[in-house]
Design a protein around this nucleic acid. Structure first.
Lengths: 351, 351
DNA sequence: CTGAAAGCGCTTACAG
DNA sequence: CTGAAAGCGCTTACAG
């Protein structure tokens, strides 16, 4: 295999030679170790500029034992032919990555993205790449926390609940509250038969389950007995929502509204209603979750629970980098605000 | 600033000690340099496993002069308060990044993501991070090619046309053909007054301009005189499309169809029509470009020109890595296929 | 088949 | 204020 080598870059030696000083002095000047005289500093900086010198980060990482790299790790969808990362389906991640990158850049870190099939791959990748910290997306089994703690680097779980989120940094929202607000909006409008469309509810403490609890609380508050018959489980995707939409329409009891755990699911539900000739919000009211940009694009615009996804990414990166640079902020659990955004997919029940 | 140091990882020395061999032998075994005896190999591998040893990539990069890192560089939106990367607006990038990451991972590379405001920042970042190759998204000024060539690393421009794409690797589609197919679909349906909604047409050779030429060709083919009055320029975004939609409706001449350069723009146009009470496709036919997943989500489903975005990312990474590992494939210009996807946003003109 | 040694490009005590 | 030297964790001729 013929490898194309990197350009022979100018090194610290070249700069030292040009400025007629030692490499230690060049290093000191560049790292703001205030030892050199003004005159020496000037000479060094001049050499740096004319030679267009950039320190080799690999060498720096090696000696500093710090890479200034953070990893953003996504689960892989194992059921696909290629091991695609999980994000493919959801535009949520574009905004999220954007936020992570933006914070990281402003703090002098770079972002390494990868997919990892399971906790072991995750761990291996981290220890191989020598990243300073990791952001773990989505849901790996709880055991991942134990694995990662062995690595002794800071990491932040995002959208993770349950016991393990108590142990390291986390950034999330109050999911219970989100479910509550969404549902209360519908009960306020006068709906009684409100369905709940979600992914896996079995994982107690997970995002889905928390939102479900909020849904139940809102119903109980107005004396409606929530029963399992109104819960629809599917994949958190457009297709998952589409299927659920048809199941909802098949129901004999007159469901008039749906709370969902993700906009993407709500879009599928809306589509199924349209295909079947039902009107929104006249026949069904639908509330999403996330406030993807697409909520404003579709017709009718989707009423949803807004979380600032860009900010979420940005704060996650901040939290992580604080954890890397100061001990203090690891174990911090940031909770981001939530807003109900009312558009045209919700209205009074027509009876 | 109290820095948390990386865990003191097991190094090659630990392995050598454990296996009772020299570090050179450990290195040879791990790099498949077939020198060691079977017995020695076994001992080394055992040590590697029990100590959970992972070579430090920073050290490897330093001595090999190769980082196994590729960079994915996005322009920054300068008009925003924060320097967000450009992708924020368009779900296109989620799929694209997914494709890049997937290819890279399978070839043993990792993907570093960053935003860079201009060519200089771009260049600086690359030479600082010592990446093996770069993928440059979107459009920087032509001068970027000259800048990057000085770095002597392979790079691939994506969705870039014009003189500079002749010089290094590129991956794209036949944009002229895309514009042609989209427009021909409409002329086949019987449309005569077909608008063209795009971003900047001034950049000759750019994506917008190429597609515009295809649009013109399709019109000329059926004897329709394309004139500038039917061209609508705006930002390639939902909002840009939304504004253009209203401009189209204001027109006295009876426009019956619109060709766009991006789905995201088409969504904005569709929305403006809905808001104004116009029907699609009865009053207006609309054709998008890209085939974002959202095309199937909206109602009516958007007729569009499909390009396989995941594949585009995957092939871009392939091309780049080939360029890194073998000289041969740099300067290769890959053209990905295009398909017309007919949904419900297009139909015969109603007159 | 195996190992001692040089070197990749830096930083950091340490001595002067 | 400045520089020589050791060392970060590897790979790669080279010698045996």
């Amino acid at each position: 295999m013929k490898v194309r080598f990197m350009k022979k870059n100018t090194t610290i030696k070249d700069v030292a030679r040009y400025a007629q000083v030692s490499i230690a002095t060049v290093s000191n000047v560049l790292n703001n170790v205030d030892k050199a005289s003004e005159e020496t500093k000037r000479k060094v900086m001049e050499a740096v500029h004319t030679l267009e010198y950039h320190p080799n980060v690999n060498a720096q990482s090696l000696v500093r034992q710090k890479s200034n790299l953070i990893g953003l790790i996504f689960p892989l969808s194992k059921h696909l032919p290629v091991y695609k990362t999980f994000m493919g389906d959801n535009p949520f991640y574009t905004e999220y990555i954007c936020g992570v990158e933006c914070s990281a850049r402003s703090r002098g870190y770079d972002v390494l993205i990868t997919g990892a099939g399971d906790e072991r791959q995750c761990k291996e990748w981290i220890s191989k790449r020598k990243i300073d910290g990791a952001i773990i997306m989505g849901k790996y089994p709880d055991s991942i926390v134990k694995e990662l703690e062995e690595l002794q680097i800071p990491f932040v779980m995002t959208d993770a609940h349950g016991m393990y989120s108590e142990r390291q940094g986390s950034v999330g929202i109050n999911d219970e509250l989100g479910g509550y607000i969404a549902t209360k909006h519908l009960t306020d409008l006068g709906h009684k038969m409100i369905a709940f469309a979600a992914g896996d509810l079995d994982y107690i403490g997970g995002v889905n389950h928390q939102r479900y609890q909020g849904y139940q609380r809102a119903l109980e508050e107005v004396g409606i007995n929530s029963h399992n018959g109104l819960v629809f489980i599917g994949t958190v995707s457009f297709d998952g929502g589409y299927e659920i939409g048809f199941k909802i329409m098949e129901r004999l009891e007159p469901i008039t509204a749906v709370v969902t755990v993700a906009d993407i699911m709500a879009f599928g539900i809306l589509k199924s209603f349209t295909v079947a000739g039902r009107r929104v919000p006249e026949d069904y009211s639908v509330v999403g979750f996330d406030d993807l940009k697409e909520c404003a694009y579709v017709t009718p615009g989707l009423t949803t629970i807004r979380q600032d996804i860009f900010q979420k990414g940005a704060i996650t990166a901040e939290t992580l980098i604080n954890g890397i640079e100061y001990e203090k902020s690891i174990n911090s659990h940031v909770e981001l605000p939530l807003t109900l955004i009312i558009r045209n997919s919700t209205g009074r029940p027509s009876d």
